[in-house]
């Protein structure tokens, strides 16, 4: 079974990712057995069918897709995948923050695609808590990427108080 990093641990993980191939359409593609991350377009086209079929529905967003599309159903989703088509495409960081901070999503956000050790720290700070690394990468080694820095300046999902506020509290304590 494939393995991923989840909550700072390496775990076996059964989730599949459905991608539409040539000729397949969101309305007609066969829905695979659970658990599966479905493309946003499939979710939008067949929401009720999916909710009836899967106890733990999952959807993935591509980097150009707007998390707002999930806002109304956020509490129903077990896993939301955020795709990084290339590790240099930084849109997924904004998507993850929006899911957490604006739409208050509390389930798992999983980074999928070109996911590499040296981006994990940023991903974690943006609210991503599971990482399906690129298959050629060593997961044990990659774990170190989650804890490169022990302090950070800005507010993030992991630390909603920017350093300057904590410095001030410390100074007056």
């Amino acid at each position: 079974m494939p393995r991923i990093i989840k909550h700072h641990q390496i775990v076996d993980d059964p989730w599949q990712i459905l991608t539409l191939t040539d000729g397949e359409t969101p309305g007609t593609v066969a829905l695979p057995a659970a658990p599966v991350l479905l493309p946003l377009a499939v979710w939008l086209a067949r929401r009720d069918e999916i909710l009836a079929r899967y106890q733990q529905p999952g959807v993935w967003l591509d980097s150009d897709e707007d998390p707002e599309a999930l806002a109304g159903d956020i509490a129903r989703l077990t896993v939301i995948g955020v795709n990084f088509p290339k590790f240099t495409d930084g849109r997924g960081y904004s998507s993850a923050r929006l899911l957490r901070e604006r739409y208050h999503y509390a389930g798992e956000i999983r980074a999928i695609g070109d996911v590499l050790q040296d981006q994990l720290f940023f991903m974690r700070r943006c609210g991503i808590d599971a990482y399906a690394l690129r298959p050629d990468k060593n997961l044990e080694q990659a774990l170190a990427g989650l804890s490169v820095f022990s302090e950070t300046y800005q507010a993030g999902v992991d630390q909603p108080q920017p350093l300057f506020l904590r410095r001030l509290t410390e100074a007056t304590a």
């Binding site: 590790f87 240099t88 495409d89 930084g90 960081y93 904004s94 923050r97 981006q119 720290f121 940023f122 991903m123 700070r125 943006c126 820095f149 950070t152 300046y153 800005q154 993030g156 920017p162 350093l163 300057f164």
Partner: peptide, 16 residues
């Protein structure tokens, strides 16, 4: 300086 600190390793904006 405030901007330096804020922009240093900003997690959302490292791959603009």
């Amino acid at each position: 300086e405030l901007l330096r600190q804020w922009s240093t390793f900003h997690p959302e904006f490292a791959f603009l």
